[in-house]
Simulated assay, not measured.
Amino acid sequence: MRSIIVVFMLFLSLAANATIDTYEFKDDANRERFQQLTNELRCPKCQNQNLAGSNSPIASDLRREIHRMVEEGKQNTEITDYMVARYGEFVLYRPRMSASTWILWYGPFVLVAVGFAVVLLITRKRKRVNEKQEDSLNDKDKTRLATLLDKGKAE
């Protein structure tokens, strides 16, 4: 039990000593752009964490690179294009509209439409089967059924 506590304390001390990146900006607009970009771009290593929240070394390098580019006056699209060129569309939380991402953008709508069509076809088929079963009685069976129902009411 003591060894578990020692290991736990060791991990806590490592987390407490983690470095926090601090960057100097020319103005508040650059700071806001930097924060926006690091929140919108995904860490290539962490997979589902943005650059601002990731502690991985590659995220630190990318934040430093974004800071440099923001301070050089590059536009957000230039910075995003640079990241996509190096790491692919994966770094974008909202992939761009292209032939390779159509399934991401339109796939859910297609699946909902297909599901609706399947449900519609199944209900129509069941309705036809039920109507067919009702019509399957010939005249003789209908009169016999009516007689039995009348007899059941009389009792």
Rank of each mutant, 00 (worst) to 15 (best):
V112Y: 00
N55W: 01
E72L: 14
M83H: 08
T77H: 12
D81F: 02
V119Y: 13
A113T: 03
I58Q: 12
P95D: 14
Y82D: 11
W105C: 02
R63S: 06
V110T: 03
M69Q: 14
E72G: 03
V91H: 03
F116P: 01
L92Q: 05
P108K: 05
V84H: 12
A117C: 02
L111V: 04
V114F: 11
L104S: 03
Y106T: 08
R96F: 07
Q75L: 10
L111D: 00
Y87Q: 00
M69N: 09
M97N: 12
P108N: 02
A113R: 00
W102S: 13
R64C: 02
A85G: 12
Q75H: 08
T77P: 01
S56D: 15
F116S: 12
G88F: 00
Y106D: 04
F116H: 04
D81C: 08
Y106V: 14
E72I: 10
S54R: 06
S98M: 08
M97V: 13
E71F: 02
T80N: 03
A85L: 03
V110P: 00
P108A: 14
V70M: 06
T80P: 01
V110I: 07
S100W: 09
A85W: 02
M97W: 14
W102N: 04
I122C: 10
V70E: 07
T77V: 05
S60D: 13
K74R: 15
T123L: 11
R86F: 00
P95I: 04
T101R: 02
L120G: 01
M83Q: 05
V118A: 15
P57F: 12
A113C: 06
N76H: 11
V112D: 03
E72R: 07
R63W: 12
M83V: 12
R86K: 12
G88I: 01
S100N: 04
V110G: 00
G107M: 00
V119A: 14
N55Q: 14
P108F: 05
T80Q: 13
T101K: 04
A117G: 13
P108G: 02
A117E: 05
R96V: 05
Y82M: 07
G107L: 05
E71N: 15
A99I: 10
Y93V: 09
M83W: 10
R64L: 10
L62G: 08
V118H: 04
S60H: 15
E78W: 06
E65K: 15
T101H: 11
H67M: 01
V118E: 07
F109V: 05
D61E: 11
V91W: 11
A59P: 04
E78Y: 02
E65A: 11
T77A: 13
Q75C: 09
A117K: 03
R68W: 05
V118C: 05
S98P: 12
R68M: 03
E65Q: 13
A85S: 12
S56N: 08
V112L: 04
Y106I: 03
L121F: 15
I58H: 09
F90K: 15
G115T: 15
F116G: 15
E89A: 10
A85Q: 14
L120K: 11
T77M: 14
P57T: 06
S56P: 00
L111P: 00
A99Y: 12
I58N: 10
V112H: 03
E65I: 09
E71H: 11
H67A: 09
G115P: 07
